[in-house]
Design a binder for these strands. Structure first.
Length: 275
DNA sequence: AAGATGGTCAACCGCTCGACT
DNA sequence: AAGTCGAGCGGTTGACCATCT
């Protein structure tokens, strides 16, 4: 048995919001809040809109703490890292970017970052491709607390990489490999960003390559909004002390690099940063 | 100058999950 | 325990705008 629709779509206005509707919703929210019920809100507020539409408009556009405009490099880095670890869980990623919505992050990924990723991982020798991929590697490495160790060298398209005996870790993609030293990170920690929501690591555990985990979006959204570092599952990841956002990021041991399978890429991504 | 193409982003859709009865 | 409901999520669409040919 199917669910009854939340509203009669033939009787409510759809499409772009007018300034008048925005003002009505904002005024109502300022005075009353949601009242715990989005479905009944439009009727109470005098809007001929579906409750879901009102919720979306408020959360993605009218909320006072929404940040509009371009994403910063630091925000990009957060998205890179979290996407590489947890995938398209936009609400979780957005929760680490104050003022950004899941819709914002999703759009930004689909329109900018995903393309950069695809471009950067295309095999070949053109300089732009190489630079993009290496930029990507650097972003990943920064989060892992790795430092660039050597200049790239031609390694073909092998997708193999690992931590080796001299304590180096390699990121491979395209026709080269970058190596990073596990010790003494030299990058400015990206973690200097101020994060408002902690991410609790407890229940992902679906990646066959790692048993590390992260809580569901609902759990995240329900957590305290006080400043907090990311928390990691020390029992399953083996990465005991990436102190996370808000402190310097270190991975102390057990680095493994696995192919996360982004499109046609032979790129190799860090896995188990501590999530 | 005009049509074609591509990029961006707001909005919608359908689904899952948890709360409640 | 099962059914219902609302909230919230990720995927997708489509309108609008900019750039290209």
């Amino acid at each position: 048995m199917g669910r009854a629709p939340c509203c009669d779509k033939t009787k409510v206005k759809r499409g772009p919001w007018s300034p008048e509707e925005d003002a009505t919703l904002k005024n109502y929210m300022d005075k009353n809040g949601t009242g715990g019920n989005w479905i009944s809100l439009p009727r109470k507020a005098g809007l001929n809109r579906c409750g879901k539409s009102c919720r979306l408009r408020w959360l993605n556009y009218l909320r006072p703490d929404i940040k509009h405009g371009c994403f910063t490099e630091e925000e990009d880095n957060v998205i890179w890292t979290l996407y590489n670890n947890i995938g398209s869980r936009w609400s979780v990623i957005a929760s680490q970017l104050p003022g950004r919505t899941d819709n914002d992050v999703k759009n930004h990924w689909n329109t900018k970052l995903k393309k950069l990723l695809a471009t950067g991982s295309t095999s070949g020798n053109n300089n732009e491709t190489t630079n993009n991929t290496r930029y990507h590697h650097l972003n990943l490495a920064r989060f892992a607390g790795l430092i660039p160790k050597t200049e790239s060298s031609d390694q073909g398209n092998s997708a193999c990489c690992d931590t080796n005996s001299d304590n180096s870790t390699y990121l491979m993609g395209g026709n080269y490999v970058d190596s990073f030293d596990l010790k003494e990170p030299k990058f400015e920690p990206i973690s200097q960003l101020s994060y408002s929501n902690p991410v609790e690591v407890s229940d992902l555990g679906t990646n066959g390559n790692t048993s590390s985990s992260i809580s569901s979006a609902r759990e995240v959204s329900s957590l305290s909004t006080s400043s907090s570092n990311l928390a990691f599952d020390e029992n399953t990841t083996g990465f005991a002390s990436w102190s996370g956002i808000g402190g310097v990021n270190y991975i102390e041991d057990g680095i493994n690099l696995v192919d996360m399978g982004f499109g046609p890429s032979n790129d190799v991504f860090l896995s188990g940063f501590g999530f």
